[in-house]
Amino acid sequence: MADRFVPGDRVRTRSVDPAGHTRLPRYARGALGTVVERAGVHPLADDRARGLPGAAEPVWHVRFEATELFGTGDHAVTVEVWDSYLEAVS
């Protein structure tokens, strides 16, 4: 299946709070960022934490401006985000 994103794409992280283990940190939920690159293909950790094999999906480095995450700061934070945690921004 073709990748949903390419570097430079604008994306938004989901704002859901899944039950159980997840790898989308709270501070980076519902936030607008930019895809830096694809960081491999891995089963979703949320599934593996339940003892399930999990379907492999792309993982992305997504860069966020500190102002987007915290409302303040002149730095950037890059988070590694599974494809399922992301929504495309048109």
Binding site: R23, L24, P25, A28, A39, G40, H42, A45, V59, H61, R63, D74, H75, A76, V77, T78, V79, E80, V81, W82
Partner: peptide
């Protein structure tokens, strides 16, 4: 990050952009 780096005795010029990487997945 600037405040935390200062606790390590690391001060960067204001025009140096700080980029934090959160190892939240497999890399």
């Amino acid at each position: 990050p600037r405040g935390v780096l200062a606790e390590f005795g690391t001060t960067l010029p204001d025009d140096v952009r700080i980029s934090v990487w959160d190892a939240s997945a497999e890399s």
